[in-house]
Amino acid sequence: MTARTLAPWIGKRALGAVLTVLVASVLIYGALRLVPGDPVLAVTSGRRLTPDQITALRHAYGLDKGFAQGYLAWIGDALQLNLGRSLTYQTSVTSLIGSRLGVSGLLIAYSAVLAIAVGAGVALVSAVKGGLADRIATVAASLTTATPPFVAAIVLLSVFAVGLGWFPSTGAGSGLTDRLWHLTLPAVAMAIAAFGVLARVGNAAFADELGREHVTAARSRGVDGAALIRRHVVRNALGPLLTVIGVLVASLFVGTAVIETAFGLDGVGSLLVTSVSRRDFPVVQGIALFGVLLFVVVNTLVDLALPFIDPRVTVGGPRR
């Protein structure tokens, strides 16, 4: 793989990512237009608005223009990080999301680290040891995958926050240590389902590599123990693992909606929930767009990393 073949390939990937975001943005914008009747009246029903406000809103969201024109105006603003103003908070949606991103970002990172460390660790041990360890890991993975995050949240809250009192039940705390302490239970609640997926996929990937002839061949050369596992099993299983991790991190973002509400955290997820219930559509649109962006960025990064992990992943399509 040389720089000459790499540059156009990265360009292609980036272009694909941009197109995905654009298509998603059309859908997100179009959802507002699909509301039967007058969108502004429908989404602001129950709110007392003066005719001037309504006209202003219609103008702000391009509802007085055609679909194409309206979309172009909206996406143009969005590209300049202007996602409109919240109907509830009367502040800009961008700053609203931005101010809550810290908590959500830390929560996602925290729970991703937990899920990856424990999930991949359990996967490796169960694949290498086999037997009883493997069966226990399989049962644990099935149980955790089948546990909805809100159930995990309730159990964790009642045991560790209410019962034992080891962790706070609500709030995000201040300062890094205090914040991590506050975010531990929510991070665990989110990581539980992700752990199951990683433990299963990781186990399959590791077991697959362990059964390969090149591992037997390495053993026959006197490579064993940690060096064998690290150099010939974990290294080779990184590709499939990273692909799953990419999807998982993006889905953790979706999971924040439930968890942040359950633990009373002021993050993007709880903002989404309140905004939906208050029909604050600029905020909902903004968060949806942000979610799509995050998903696409993470998965594009994973795609870009794969040729470096496995040189057989050819740059620019099949070549063999």
């Binding site: 390969r212 002839e213 090149h214 061949a217 026959s220 006197g222 080779n236 057989r312």
Partner: peptide
């Protein structure tokens, strides 16, 4: 023993060498 005295050559070289190294 495996590192110094005996070496094995396998049937399919493509399967016997770690492809990512």
């Amino acid at each position: 023993l495996r590192r110094t005295r005996a070496s094995m050559i396998f049937q399919d070289p493509r399967a016997a060498i770690n492809p990512v190294r």
